[in-house]
Simulated scan of single mutants.
Amino acid sequence: MIIKQKLENKIEILKNENNIKKINNFNNETLDILLKKYNLTNSDDKRMMKQELRRIYSASVEKYCNLKLISKPSIDKNITITEKCHIISFEHLFKNRKYKEAISPFNVLFLNPDLHKFYDNNYLTFNPLEQKIELTELGRNKDDISYYNDKKINVNNLQLEFIEKNYNIIKKRVVIHNEKN
């Protein structure tokens, strides 16, 4: 029985690796097409490119969730509605031409809508080493969000790998997230 379970697990891992390759290849090919299609010095083209990248990002996250490669954990068991939230700001990645990172399905936290707003407004940040939400300097001055401080968010190994690879960017997140186009 143990050997059968190990074999089934190995088969599942191989299927997932194959699906990851297919999705990544599709995303890379699509990204190459977009980079040829849009002139990023033109503001309309830049806006269109951002829309396309956000669409690819959302589709990739959904595909990975469907494959059970990413789960949609929630901090609060009573809140079932979540939104996709970039760990590293989309605007920062786009501005620095890190398009592959911008569409990476591992650059995601699933947060309830209120928490997402706090995160985007730099009241909260994510500590990847401890996998916890932390209040920023701005957040420490807001009484209504102290509940979220030190709340654990479980991320899987693939998300952690992405985070660790980009951790220097995340450490500067408060500055990064304030950047606008």
Rank of each mutant, 00 (worst) to 15 (best):
I2T: 14
L7F: 14
K10E: 02
E12F: 06
K15N: 09
N19D: 06
N25V: 14
F26G: 02
F26L: 14
E29N: 14
T30A: 12
L40E: 12
L40A: 03
S43H: 07
R47K: 10
M48T: 13
R55I: 10
S58Y: 04
V61R: 02
K63L: 11
K68W: 11
S71V: 00
K72C: 11
I75Y: 13
N78W: 11
T82N: 04
E83N: 15
C85A: 05
I87P: 09
F94M: 08
R97Q: 11
K100C: 14
E101A: 08
A102C: 06
I103E: 07
V108R: 12
P113C: 09
D114N: 10
L115E: 14
K117I: 08
F118I: 04
N122S: 04
Y123R: 08
L124P: 03
T125Y: 00
T125K: 01
P128N: 02
K132E: 01
K132N: 05
I133F: 01
L135C: 01
L135P: 02
L138G: 08
G139W: 01
D144E: 04
S146L: 10
K151I: 07
I153D: 05
V155I: 06
L158A: 00
L158G: 00
F162M: 10
I163D: 00
K165L: 08
K165Q: 00
Y167K: 08
K172M: 01
R173T: 09
V174K: 00
I176K: 03
K180S: 12
N181I: 13
